[in-house]
């Protein structure tokens, strides 16, 4: 479902003396249906960069990143957008929303974008928000004013609203209390059970041990200093 072949990436900082920072080289991995794979490695090894590349948020310099048959390295923007709508979910660490949009809408949006009937989308959003213990009185408010933990849970609810066949998780259990952490882990297990291919970053070793089938050490892709 997710496949990387010989992917490399470097940052060129044009405004800082054209400094070249190589990040990844020869990265390759595969995630199959129903599988959860963890990216590991030290801070700065390029876990987040790799994840963002799989989402199309960062450009790859070479190689192929194929998700559900679409190569993100060569795909047109609208094909990447269509992929994100229909196949590829991403739970980032930060919630980015338009001010004024109520929490319920934020969570239901991925479903609404796919033209799911409004009532059904809202019902799903309510179910997830309830599951993640977001008090009902907050549902009609914009999440911009929520606490960090609440925002993170809204973000997770949004990421799981639609059953994406491929899912990227960036620290999904960070800053969560044990109860909510357990809810998130079971959501991940459910997604696996329905056949989703999941690629994630988990600093929480216990969580990783529970949901991940295997790990890939990103430091293996760190370019060797010439």
């Amino acid at each position: 479902m997710i496949e990387l072949r010989d992917v490399s990436k470097q940052f060129v900082l044009h405004n800082q003396g054209s400094a070249v920072i190589p990040v990844l080289q020869g990265a390759a991995l595969q995630v199959s249906h129903g599988e959860c794979v963890a990216l590991t490695g030290n801070s700065g090894a390029g876990k987040s960069t790799l994840m963002r590349m799989v989402y199309g948020n960062y450009l790859a310099d070479a190689g192929a990143i194929v998700v559900d048959g679409v190569d993100l390295v060569t795909a047109a923007p609208r094909d990447i957008l269509a992929l994100r709508r229909q196949s590829l979910g991403y739970v980032s660490q930060f919630l980015r929303v338009v001010p004024r949009v109520p929490t319920l809408e934020v969570v239901a949006e991925p479903l609404l974008m796919l033209r799911v009937e409004r009532a059904a989308a809202m019902a799903r959003a309510e179910q997830l928000l309830g599951l993640l213990n977001i008090p009902e009185r907050l549902w009609s408010l914009s999440p911009t004013t929520f606490s960090g933990g609440e925002q993170q849970r809204v973000n997770i609810a949004r990421g799981f609203a639609y059953s994406y066949p491929a899912l990227l998780l960036d620290e999904p259990t960070a800053s969560l209390d044990p109860v909510n952490r357990a809810v998130v882990l079971s959501l991940i297990e459910e997604a696996k059970a329905r056949g989703a291919a999941i690629l994630g970053i988990f600093h929480d070793a216990e969580a990783r041990a529970r949901v991940c089938d295997r790990s890939i050490d990103v430091s293996d892709f760190t370019p060797k200093a010439a």
């Binding site: 940052f11 060129v12 963002r52 199309g56 948020n57 960062y58 450009l59 923007p77 990447i80 957008l81």
Partner: peptide, 11 residues
């Protein structure tokens, strides 16, 4: 390019 890509990984 894609808006978030150009803003997050400008070339």
């Amino acid at each position: 390019g894609l808006t978030d890509q150009v803003l997050d990984d400008p070339q």
